[in-house]
Design a protein around this nucleic acid. Structure first.
Lengths: 144, 144
DNA sequence: CTGCATCCCTTTCGATACTG
DNA sequence: CAGTATCGAAAGGGATGCAG
C-alpha cells in the first residue's frame, strides 16, 4: 500500500548540517536549517505553490483545482494536496454525496505561509527582468 | 561539453499556465506565474538557499563553502554556484594565484533576494512545531 | 467525481576518477 | 584548490486503467 502516494515530500531526505564539525561558531544564519529546508522544499515545489495560490480566494474542489492549473496530472495534484494536508496547510473536507465531492481549503497556517510566499513572488516579479538579462548574458558568454 | 554542468536549473521545465482555458478572469494572483515559478524553483532548491545563507557575511571560497555546508558534493556545489551566477545572484572572482583561488560573493540582486528568503525562513522557524505536529498527527492517522 | 495502482521514461544527484 | 567527465542509483513525474 505504499507505492503511489509516498514519494511526495515524505520528510527531509538527508538534511545536511550547515554547522557541521567541531568548529561551531554562533552564526545567526544557521538557526534551524533543517526546519527551514523543510518549508523551503515545499515552497520550492511548483505545484504546492500553485495550489496555495489557487486556494487564496476560498475553498476549491479537486477537479476545479486540476482545471485551474491545467498542466498538472491528477497524480501530482493528489500528491501535492496530500503533502499540504499532511503539513496542516490545507484541510480536506469530504461531502458524502453522489457523486462525491471533496473540498480543499487553506488553514490559518496555510494562509500564514501565503504571505511570505507572496512577498517572494512579488520580489520575483519585480526583479525578473534583471534575472533574465543576467541569464542571457551568461548564456551568451558561455556558448557564444 | 554539455554533460555535467547543465542539468541544474537551466530554465523552466514546463511552466504550466494557471489561467489556462477560455475562462480567464482577472485574478490578481496569477500575475507572472512563469517568472514567479522560476525564482521559487531556485528558492526551493535547498543548496541554493544554503549557499545564499552562507554568503551572507561576506565572500567565500569554493572549498570554504563546501566545508560549511558539509553534505553537498562538489558537483552540486559547482552546479548551484553556476546557477546562482547565471541568474546574477552571485559573482565569481578568480585570483590567478597558485594555488588558484575563487571567491563567490552575493550581488546586490542576491542580497535583495536574501530578504524575502529570510522572511520565509523565519516564518518556517516560527511555525515549524505546528507543521511537525500536523505531520505526526497525519502519519499516525494514516498508518496507525 | 475523487483518487489509488502500475508501468515507464526522464531528470537529478552522489561517488569516483582525472585535469590545470 | 577548483573544477570537469562519466557512470549508476534514485527520485520525479506523466499516461493509463481501475475502484468507490
Amino acid at each position: 500500500m505504499d507505492t503511489l502516494l509516498k514519494p511526495a515530500h515524505t520528510d527531509l531526505p538527508a538534511s545536511p548540517r550547515l554547522d557541521a564539525g567541531p568548529d561551531q561558531r554562533p552564526d545567526p544564519n544557521h538557526a534551524d536549517c533543517r526546519g527551514v529546508a523543510s518549508v523551503l522544499s515545499r515552497v520550492g515545489d511548483k505545484w504546492s505553490v500553485f495550489v496555495i495560490m489557487m486556494l487564496s480566494d476560498g475553498p476549491k474542489r479537486f477537479n476545479e483545482l486540476k482545471r485551474m492549473i491545467n498542466g498538472i496530472s491528477q497524480r501530482m495534484l493528489t500528491l501535492t494536496l496530500r503533502g499540504l494536508e499532511r503539513d496542516g496547510l490545507v484541510t480536506r473536507t469530504i461531502f458524502p454525496t453522489i457523486p462525491p465531492r471533496v473540498d480543499y481549503e487553506l488553514t490559518d497556517l496555510g494562509r500564514g505561509l501565503q504571505q511570505p510566499v507572496k512577498a517572494l513572488g512579488e520580489w520575483a516579479i519585480e526583479h525578473l527582468s534583471q534575472i533574465e538579462a543576467a541569464r542571457t548574458r551568461f548564456d551568451a558568454r558561455n556558448e557564444g
